[in-house]
């Protein structure tokens, strides 16, 4: 697979993921660029990976963490991503997700938006599959509870 094919296929996935994590459009663009530059530089490895999507998202997550660590903005930016005005369509799900920690939010995002498997999420987050499953289950319980509260 050429770099152009990879870029065309996964640019929306990476952009969406970064936009979910960050509100600052400039920062999203910077990290998007760094991610695909790293993909380009490691293109020879793609044939060896089980899931190119998980591999690219893991790179994006690492680049995001590096970028924010450099700027010492981790907590501010991640919180901003949830608190800034995201428009009416996004508002409800963002409010709902604000009840969860960052890892749980990423797991649910991966499962419900990117349709990733628990194994792929484990690869992206660098945690065991069992932890992904148990965190997903706990997060679902929290959301179920919140949705019930809302409907009462």
């Amino acid at each position: 697979m050429s770099f152009e094919e990879i870029y065309t296929r996964y640019v929306d996935t990476v952009y969406r993921f970064l936009k979910f994590k960050l509100e600052d459009e400039h920062l999203v663009e910077d990290v998007l660029q760094e991610t695909f530059l790293a993909v380009y530089q490691n293109l020879h490895k793609i044939a060896e990976v089980n899931s190119p999507k998980a591999w690219i998202l893991a790179i994006a997550r690492n680049k995001l963490v590096d970028h924010l660590r450099k700027k010492r903005l981790v907590e501010v930016e991640l919180a901003e991503g949830l608190e800034a005005d995201p428009g009416p369509d996004h508002l409800f799900i963002r409010q709902l997700l604000s009840h969860l920690d960052d890892t749980a939010r990423t797991i649910l995002y991966g499962l419900y938006v990117e349709e990733l498997t628990c194994s792929e999420l484990a690869e992206i987050l660098g945690i065991p599959v069992g932890t992904v499953k148990s965190k997903a289950h706990a997060a679902r319980s929290v959301l179920q509870h919140k949705l019930k509260e809302e409907s009462v």
């Binding site: 929306d12 969406r16 979910f20 996004h90 799900i93 419900y112 938006v113 959301l143």
Partner: peptide, 13 residues
Amino acid sequence: ALLRRFAPLKTVA
């Protein structure tokens, strides 16, 4: 219900 709630996040670049 959850899939429907998450649907607005499926944006494109």
